[in-house]
């Protein structure tokens, strides 16, 4: 019986985690734009000195 309760709590926490992840991803705008992130990760960027200078100043 206690095993059942533990399983229940475990599964609910897991599911709630997924729900939270989903709501977070919607809020974060992951479904707004399905093009940019997919392509952005393919750019192999040269480090830009401009920005580094800016932040160190």
């Amino acid at each position: 019986m206690s095993a059942m309760i533990l399983m229940l709590i475990g599964s609910l926490i897991l599911a709630a985690g997924f729900l939270a992840a989903f709501l977070w991803s919607v809020k974060d705008g992951q479904y707004d734009d399905d093009f940019s992130p997919a392509h952005r990760m393919l750019f192999n960027d040269t480090k830009n000195n401009n920005n580094i200078n800016q932040s160190s100043n």
Binding site: G29, D32, D33, D34, F35, S36, H39
Partner: peptide
């Protein structure tokens, strides 16, 4: 900084 939303 600049961030693009391509769909929009």
């Amino acid at each position: 900084s600049s961030k693009v939303n391509f769909s929009k």
